[in-house]
């Protein structure tokens, strides 16, 4: 049972991590990195580290996304409807 849960979590985490590298849209990449943090927080719970899980959920999935999102906005790179990688 735990093995299946762990398998699903790890696959989700690695898929989201790949999305961070491959998604052409920066806003989407930030959302994916936030998802990675969320899954990592769940893995911390499975590993019996509730303190670390709370920190990771609050910082990684919340505050870090806010910092990066603000950064993208101030950098003038905030584009939501960006289709292909070529039309930057």
């Amino acid at each position: 049972m735990t093995e299946w849960l762990a398998l699903i979590l790890v696959v989700m985490m690695l898929a989201a991590a790949l999305a961070v590298v491959l998604v052409p849209n920066l806003v989407g990449a930030i959302a994916a990195s936030s998802a990675v943090s969320l899954v990592v927080a769940v893995i911390f719970v499975v590993l019996r580290a509730p303190d670390v899980a709370m920190t990771e959920a609050a910082v990684g999935a919340g505050l870090s996304a806010a910092v990066l999102g603000l950064g993208v906005r101030r950098l003038g790179l905030w584009k939501l409807n960006e289709g292909k990688k070529d039309d930057a």
């Binding site: 920066l26 990195s33 950098l75």
Partner: peptide
């Protein structure tokens, strides 16, 4: 999973040209 995360982060940092993407991969 943990090693994959580190490896993906390092590859991303090396392969990305855009500095913001490098920062995202550093977080990974």
């Amino acid at each position: 999973g943990a090693l994959g995360l580190v490896a993906i982060g390092v590859v991303g940092m090396l392969a990305s040209r855009h500095l913001f993407r490098v920062l995202l991969c550093l977080g990974l």
